[in-house]
Lab assay of single mutants.
Amino acid sequence: GEEMDTAEIARQVKEQLIKHNIGQRIFGHYVLGLSQGSVSEILARPKPWNKLTVRGKEPFHKMKQFLSDEQNILALRSIQGR
């Protein structure tokens, strides 16, 4: 696969979550399948791509996919709003 700019992906995700008022817990649960603790760690201190294991890269693939389609963001927003 291609190398990803993990810091940039994390920054964009944080931006979207704040902009749409989506909590990290909801994002972690529905998008990444991770706990809030793992999510906040990944978003606060993303490791460089070449330092990640295959498993460590997974959340970034999912985040990139999440960012690529605004429908994903809107869907999360409606879950959050319940």
Rank of each mutant, 00 (worst) to 15 (best):
His29Lys: 13
Phe60Thr: 01
Ser40His: 15
Lys51Thr: 13
Leu76Glu: 02
Gly81Arg: 12
Val13Asn: 03
Ile18Gln: 15
Thr53Pro: 06
Gly28Glu: 07
Ile79Phe: 10
Ile9Trp: 01
Ser38Gln: 15
Ala75Lys: 15
Gly23Ala: 13
Gln36Cys: 08
Leu67Met: 06
Glu3Trp: 12
Gly28Pro: 02
Ile9Asn: 03
Thr6Trp: 01
Ser38Met: 15
Gly37Val: 11
Lys64Gly: 04
Leu34Thr: 07
Thr53Ala: 05
Ala75Gly: 09
Phe66Ala: 02
Ile73Trp: 14
Leu67Val: 06
Ser68Ile: 07
Gln71Gly: 12
Gln24Tyr: 12
Arg45Ser: 14
Trp49Phe: 02
Pro48Gln: 06
Ala7Ile: 08
Lys62Glu: 04
Ser38Tyr: 09
Lys19Cys: 05
Glu3His: 12
Leu17Tyr: 01
His29Gly: 05
Leu32Glu: 01
Gln65Phe: 04
Leu43Trp: 02
Leu17Val: 02
Lys51Ile: 13
Gln71Val: 07
Glu2Thr: 09
Asp5Thr: 13
Glu58Phe: 04
Arg77Cys: 12
Ser40Asn: 12
Ile9Pro: 03
Gln80Val: 13
Lys51Gln: 15
Glu8His: 08
Leu52Arg: 00
Glu41Tyr: 04
Gln71His: 08
Asp5Lys: 06
Ile9Met: 06
Gly23Ser: 14
Gly28Gln: 04
Leu17Ser: 03
Thr6Met: 00
Leu17Trp: 01
Ile79Val: 13
Lys51His: 10
Pro46Gly: 02
Glu58Asn: 06
His61Phe: 15
Phe60His: 03
Phe27Ala: 00
Lys57Asp: 00
Glu8Tyr: 05
Arg11Asn: 07
Glu3Tyr: 10
Gly37Phe: 10
Leu76Met: 04
Ala7Met: 09
Ser68Ala: 11
Glu15His: 15
Phe66Glu: 01
Ile9Gly: 03
Ala10Glu: 01
Ile22Ala: 01
Gly37Ile: 08
Pro48Glu: 09
Gly33Trp: 00
Ile22Gly: 01
Asn50Ala: 11
Met4Phe: 06
Leu74Ile: 14
Asn72Met: 08
Gly28Ala: 13
Val54Gly: 11
Lys64Phe: 08
Glu2Trp: 07
Arg55Asp: 14
Leu17Gln: 03
Met63Phe: 02
Tyr30His: 13
Glu58Trp: 07
Phe27Thr: 00
Glu70Ala: 12
Glu3Ser: 09
Pro59Cys: 15
Met4Val: 09
Arg55Ser: 13
Asn21Pro: 02
Ile22Glu: 02
Gly56Ser: 06
Gly28Asn: 06
Ala44Lys: 10
Met4Leu: 13
Ser68His: 06
Thr6Lys: 01
Arg45Glu: 13
Glu70Lys: 10
Gln65His: 13
Lys19Asn: 07
Gln24His: 13
Gly1Arg: 11
Val54Pro: 14
Phe27Gln: 02
Asp5Tyr: 03
Met63Gln: 01
Arg77Ile: 09
Lys57Phe: 02
Phe27Pro: 01
Lys62Ser: 04
Ala7Gln: 12
His20Pro: 02
Asn72Ala: 14
Phe27Lys: 00
Arg25Asp: 15
Phe27Asp: 01
Ala44Ile: 08
Ile18Thr: 14
Lys62Arg: 09
Leu17Asn: 02
Val39Ser: 05
Asp69Asn: 12
Asp69His: 07
Ser35His: 06
Val39Ala: 07
Thr6Ser: 04
Pro59Lys: 12
Glu2Asp: 08
Ala44Ser: 14
Glu70Val: 08
Ser78Val: 08
Leu32Asp: 02
Ser35Thr: 12
Asn72Tyr: 10
Ile79Trp: 10
Leu76Asn: 01
Ile42Gly: 01
Ile42Pro: 01
Ile26Pro: 03
Arg11Glu: 07
Gly37Lys: 15
Arg77Val: 12
Ala7Phe: 11
Glu70Thr: 09
Ile9Asp: 04
Ile22Lys: 00
Ile73Asn: 04
Glu8Ser: 09
Arg55Leu: 11
Ile22Ser: 01
His20Arg: 04
Leu76Asp: 02
Gly56Thr: 05
Leu43Gly: 00
Ala7Gly: 08
Glu2Tyr: 08
Glu15Thr: 08
Leu17Ile: 05
His29Asn: 12
Glu2Met: 10
Arg77Pro: 04
Lys64Cys: 06
Val39Gly: 02
Asp5Trp: 01
Ser68Tyr: 05
Ser38Trp: 06
Phe66Met: 02
Arg45Ile: 05
Asp69Gln: 07
Pro59Ala: 15
Val13Arg: 03
Ser78Tyr: 07
Arg45Asp: 12
Gly28Phe: 05
Ile73Ala: 12
Glu15Lys: 03
Phe60Gln: 02
Ile18Leu: 12
Lys62His: 05
Val31Cys: 07
Ser78Ile: 11
Gly23Val: 07
Arg11Ala: 08
Arg82Ala: 13
Gln71Tyr: 06
Lys51Phe: 10
Pro59Thr: 15
His20Ser: 04
Leu74Gln: 13
Lys57Asn: 03
Leu34Cys: 11
Ser38Glu: 15
Ser78Thr: 13
Gln80Leu: 09
His61Ala: 10
Glu2Gly: 08
Met4Ile: 15
Thr53His: 04
Gly28Asp: 05
Gln71Arg: 11
Ala75Met: 12
Gly23His: 13
Gln65Cys: 08
Arg11Gly: 07
Gly1Ile: 14
Gly23Pro: 15
Gln80Thr: 10
Arg11Leu: 07
Lys57Met: 08
Leu34Glu: 07
Pro46Ile: 06
Val13Ala: 04
Glu8Asn: 07
Lys19Trp: 03
Gln65Lys: 10
Glu15Ser: 14
Lys62Gln: 08
Arg82Met: 11
Gly56His: 05
Leu67Thr: 01
Glu8Val: 08
Leu32Cys: 06
Val13Lys: 03
Phe66Asn: 01
Glu58Met: 08
Lys64Gln: 14
His29Cys: 09
Asn50Ile: 04
Gly28Tyr: 05
Val31Trp: 08
Gln65Val: 09
Ser40Trp: 09
Val54Ile: 13
Ser78Gln: 15
Tyr30Gln: 10
Ile42Tyr: 05
Ala44Met: 14
Pro46Ser: 02
Phe60Ile: 05
Phe27Trp: 03
Gly1Phe: 09
Lys57Pro: 02
Ser40Pro: 06
Arg45Met: 11
Val31Leu: 04
Pro48Ile: 04
Val39Asn: 02
Arg82Ile: 10
Arg77Tyr: 09
Gln71Phe: 07
Arg77Met: 10
Ser78Trp: 07
Asn50Leu: 04
Asp5Gln: 07
Gln24Val: 14
Gly33Asn: 09
Ile73Met: 11
Ile9Arg: 02
Leu52His: 00
Gln80Met: 10
Gln80Tyr: 07
Lys51Ser: 13
Glu8Pro: 00
Leu32Val: 04
Gln71Pro: 02
Ala7Asp: 08
Asn72Leu: 06
Lys57Tyr: 03
Leu52Asn: 00
Phe60Glu: 01
Leu32Ser: 01
Asn50Arg: 11
Leu67Glu: 00
Glu41Ser: 06
Leu76Arg: 00
Gln24Trp: 14
Leu34Phe: 08
Ile9Val: 09
Arg45Lys: 13
Arg25Gly: 15
Ile42His: 04
Glu15Ile: 13
Gln80His: 10
Asp5Gly: 04
His61Pro: 02
Ile9Ala: 02
Asn72Ser: 12
Gln24Glu: 14
Arg77Glu: 13
Gln24Thr: 11
Phe66Tyr: 00
Gly28His: 04
Val39His: 01
Glu58Gln: 11
Pro48Met: 06
Ser35Glu: 13
Val39Tyr: 03
Arg25Phe: 10
Asp69Leu: 05
His29Gln: 14
Ile18Phe: 15
Gln80Glu: 13
Glu70Gln: 11
Arg11Pro: 02
Ser68Gln: 11
Phe27Leu: 04
Val31Glu: 02
Arg45Val: 07
Glu8Thr: 09
Leu32Met: 05
Gly81Ala: 14
Glu58Ile: 06
Arg25Ala: 15
Gly23Leu: 10
Lys47Ile: 10
Val54Ala: 15
Lys57His: 04
Arg55His: 15
Gln24Asn: 11
Pro46Ala: 05
Phe66Asp: 00
Phe66Cys: 00
Arg11Val: 05
Arg11Ser: 09
Arg25Leu: 07
His20Trp: 10
Pro48Cys: 06
Ile26Ser: 08
Leu76Pro: 03
Leu52Gln: 01
Glu15Cys: 15
Pro46Thr: 03
Ile18Met: 13
Gly33Phe: 01
Asn50Met: 07
Lys14Asn: 11
Leu52Met: 05
Asn50Thr: 08
Ser78Ala: 14
Lys14Gly: 06
Lys51Arg: 11
Arg55Cys: 11
Lys47Met: 11
His29Glu: 14
Phe66Lys: 01
Thr53Lys: 02
Gly28Ser: 11
Gly37Gln: 15
Ala10Gln: 01
Ile22Asp: 00
His20Asp: 02
Val54His: 12
Ala7Val: 09
Lys64Pro: 00
Gly1His: 06
